[in-house]
Design a protein around this nucleic acid. Sequence first.
DNA 1: GAGCACTGC
Length: 768
Amino acid sequence: MPSLPKTDETFTTMDQKSRKLLERKQNIAQQRKALPIASVEKRLVEEVKNNDVLIIVGETGSGKTTQLPQFLFNAGLCHDGKVIGITQPRRVAAVSVAKRVAEECGVELGQRVGYSIRFDDVTSNLTRIKYMTDGLLLREALLDPFLSKYCVIIVDEAHERTVHTDVLLGLLKTVQSARSQYVNKELDHEKRSLYKSGNSDRENRLKACQGTKLPPLKLIIMSASLDASVFSKYLGGAKAVHVQGRQYPVDVLYTYHAEPDYLDAALITIFQVHLEEGPGDILVFLTGQEEIEFVERRIKERANQLPEENRKLVIVPIYSSLPSERQMKVFKPAPLGFRKVILATNIAETSVTIPGIKFVIDPGLVKARSYNPVTGVESLIIIPTSKAQALQRSGRAGREGTGKCFRLYPESEFAKLVDSTVPEIKRCNLSNVVLQLKALGIDDILGFDFMEKPSRMAIVRSLEQLFLLGALTEDYKLSDPVGYQMSRLPLDPIYSKALILAGEYQCVEEMLIVVAMLSVESIFYIPNDKLDEARAARKCFSSPEGDHITMINVYRASKEVMEKIQVTNSQDKAAEKSINKWCRDNFINKRSLKHARDIHSQILGHIQQMGLSVTSCGDDMLQFRRCLAASFFLNVALKQPDGTYRAMASAQIVRVHPSSVLFRTKPECIIFNELVRTNQIYVRNLTRIEPLWLPELAPQGAGVLVAERWSGVEQGGDDYTDVKGPNEYGSSISGWPSRSSSPVCFPVYGLCEDGLCLSWLGDDSPPT
DNA sequence: GAGCACTGC
């Protein structure tokens, strides 16, 4: 390099730099070579070449996620400019693996190796190995139904069975069979209907593909579960290969008897390990924040009763709602001579890998979400883990050496656990899934080849809801334009509809803020030790009309602060500091606020693309509330004499959640966004509305559908007959409060002689 | 006057 100054100093630093770089390179090469998967590279590439579908069972530490895409690239699978796509259930995984692989390849991230996740796309035309979240690939499929830029798709961590993974697998099966044929005008009608037109982007893609033959799509499913047969069976008897992992043996110990108090048993075990075992950190799996805080207090109490030399414990909690600075503490090694005790939720099962763990304590329980499609109630319940989960947890003790896992239940109980966790698709609201499939041109949802089919009831309910929202036509086809527009928005369908409707009410700006804020976790952060201060801070934003307008106030206030900072402060760091301070002073969760701002800007882009102008109702919040009523007409609740509410769509008794600004006011009629069961059934995120708006604003079709379906069930003649008769299917109707049981007046979407109507039940006149 | 595992577009 003749242009460089030839001083000794320069030479030394250059030397050192390049030596370090070389060392790092050699180091990486060595690490790669040592991976169990390295020895089977040739065979794996052959298997991929010979099989269109391949299942790879790889234990943790096998290196499959980082190495396989490189093997395939080096074997020339991308020679025609096509891309290898690897999906991950989590964003962090997609990013960190992509970074690692880019380094291993010695390329800049975003060039040959890149990643794409929501709000963050680090890819280019040159990208051939692309890591992404599974949800993002599903979105891509809406624009490019043949996934034409990919030659291989690797679905990683398939055993986790997230909704996205499950839907993706079903879709990929369809795409693969479509890709194996010519995409041209001769494509017969039946095949064409798989990818029904109606959306101009997609039509363009299809046109671009016409007359060209797409190469077959290779599909690789990677799973850590030992049982590959479920995947193999689903994918037409696909071949499965096993890649060894690099995991040290973990000694699993059980209790002799069932423990009546698992928290106490956990405490005893923690101290037993601490006092009797050699060095190594302890990871304890608990179900939630409350348990973690309780156990933390108890450990400290007990440790204080021990002799000084035995008190050397560092306790670190970790759960998702903990601010990230505090989450990071789990990675800090304990001071010399100290033992770290990590109290974790499920977050430490897969999402976060903590080094130094030698002991795992597993009470065998997990907090799981369940969803009742009939009542629409979501609840969080504590249930036993599955066998697969128990294995995953014990494996956390064997990452760096041999370990021990203490299961706080007898061995006989382990045998009774279910093999694997119930896939998420069987316990969630399906409206979004159904809408996505419809948008992909898959019309027969009940007949769709799900890996594990959700209950018929759950599907029918979602179809019904989408129809009521106007996303589906009377024959259950995606409606144009509303259905198409809704499917394009990355939001809960009911929020997408609210946004579209806001166009008619001239309050798009307001609704956009609200749907963004409703899409994130609670925006208010209320620490236990500063309750009064937090409440006082929230009061500054509170609106007497309810939580939605309160959210708008918070969002606008934060925006104002940010704009002010940008004017006075050019430095990013200083700006961030100020906004952090504002969040702290106002007890706002800054992570949630940031997330809401990201969603806001993404959705804004979408609606501008759709040609929806961003109108504002200014100070006319009446208009905005009417729009809320028109959007969330299914979520109406009316006050009863005793101060509780009755949710109209399911006739359930509900209470206002204490976090609502309307907790004390208790207006006569409210709309709400969430129905959650904990100790009670609560409604959250409410706004006061006038009951008389409903007959005017609720869609005419609402009850006609319900009535028709109901009579269909009675006749036993239509498509949905396997639903068990009117009592179950029609419970939302037969469960309406009757005149005798409730003296209050209710507006209901009832059954009339000529179909459905919104009528008043109870008194003859509406309440005043 | 309550309390919320974890992801994702």
